[in-house]
Design a protein around this nucleic acid. Sequence first.
DNA 1: TAGTGGTCTAGACCACGCG
DNA 2: GCGTGGTCTAGACCACTAA
Lengths: 269, 269
Amino acid sequence: MATTATVEVAAEPKYWHLRTVLVQTIESEFTAGQSLPNERDLAARFGVARATLRQALEQLELEGRLSRRRGAGTVVAGPRVDIALGTQGEGWPGIELGDRQLVDGTTAAVPGRLAAQLGVRPRAMVHRIRRRQLSMRQAVGIECLYVPRAIVPRVPELLGDNRRAALVLRHLRHHPLQGLTRSVEVGVAEPEEARLLERPPGTPVLVVTTSYTAQGRTAALAVATYRADTCRLAFGDVLGDHGDATEGRRGGPGAPPVPAMAMGTRSAS
Amino acid sequence: MATTATVEVAAEPKYWHLRTVLVQTIESEFTAGQSLPNERDLAARFGVARATLRQALEQLELEGRLSRRRGAGTVVAGPRVDIALGTQGEGWPGIELGDRQLVDGTTAAVPGRLAAQLGVRPRAMVHRIRRRQLSMRQAVGIECLYVPRAIVPRVPELLGDNRRAALVLRHLRHHPLQGLTRSVEVGVAEPEEARLLERPPGTPVLVVTTSYTAQGRTAALAVATYRADTCRLAFGDVLGDHGDATEGRRGGPGAPPVPAMAMGTRSAS
DNA sequence: TAGTGGTCTAGACCACGCG
DNA sequence: GCGTGGTCTAGACCACTAA
């Protein structure tokens, strides 16, 4: 009743318009790390239902512009974390690399869905090593390496996760790596993953599947899931037709060079 | 009051449980292309509000298991479309490749946000060539190539999109490609993109940014957005330490690995 | 025109974090 | 304990597709 006068070409959904306004506001009046007002206040301020406001916030979060935490609040996010994906297997042979941290190492039946990709029978035994990718004390990804027992036969049952993982990787190193195939797609985090990533179940993630080939067969399969809101996958220099290897960039394993921009994208100054 | 003696660790949200049930149902009783009951019926059947059901459906769609269209209905999706990303620039020098279709070719001021990445001044002029990636008559991605006029000076103003694009690409071919840098992240489709992809605004997309280097400077920048629900990015064989080059791309790339499964994804049978 | 998914509302309660 | 975001409900209307 209030507004019968305006014609409202509308066409654009309310949540999208809201998103646009919020983007402008964030970029002009906020800096990374700053807190936004709470959802109820924001909804009231813009004259929309909370659900509609949340639809806009969800998109901003998926874009990596906001970070929301239950109980805490909504803060403006910094630039995305670069996850360096190279051609050497991200140091798989060699756990504790850079900001990565071992989660566990087990041996169990292959998770059905991966049997074909690993080139093993449906219920074959495989070693599984999981590690966590950290950034600013925050888990941003879970990396999971599967190795068929046909490749690395067995490791003592009683060893701790750390020793088991190290052992499997050491054995794996004896297989000369021929090459790898890789795919990237979007998925949703299952409850356990979500817990490790400190996000609600169903959180969108980037799923990177890498298949390592040695001696003509699949020696290992890595399935890594990264928080879609906070991560960007960065691929190293790839050569063109016949260029010379300039190499260089993004080589350092410990701390990926993060190309200068540091805090360029957002942040006032 | 310890009234609950049971472990009760989970407290899984309803939408997630719903998702799980739906996944099982879909995998056991449906095949690609089949229609699901409408949302109101499904919600009633599972005894939840429609909004809750929709939350589950949204996730299934993001995973690529369902495909929803306004006015039509919800159908079980076939396997994801493999988007082959190689080291040759996806045939950029050479438009109409595979299932790709030219959208338009223009010359205008650089979109601000890309100036730095292109290595040009804020309002410098750049050529822009857009093409559409199709699959089963359906647009699944929009690929956009930016070329600074410092690299390809000018093309006649009056030419049609097709001629302009061809001209820019032919000029570009004279610059020997040294290498490329690439990143992948998640974003949301802006209204125009969304329209081209036949999706509502804000649809999640995979954003692939590729920077082409020639003679020590950025010769071109490609920004491609693919529907996150229907696409998987497939990277060609990448060599490890010292493997032999099996290569093979260019051969029969029209149909990447696509493991035999699923007859015609959709369309009656 | 009938039926579908897409948007939006105005509530309610819950689970978590922090002081 | 209080404030936050997360979940859920039961409606309503709109925009689109297809018969």
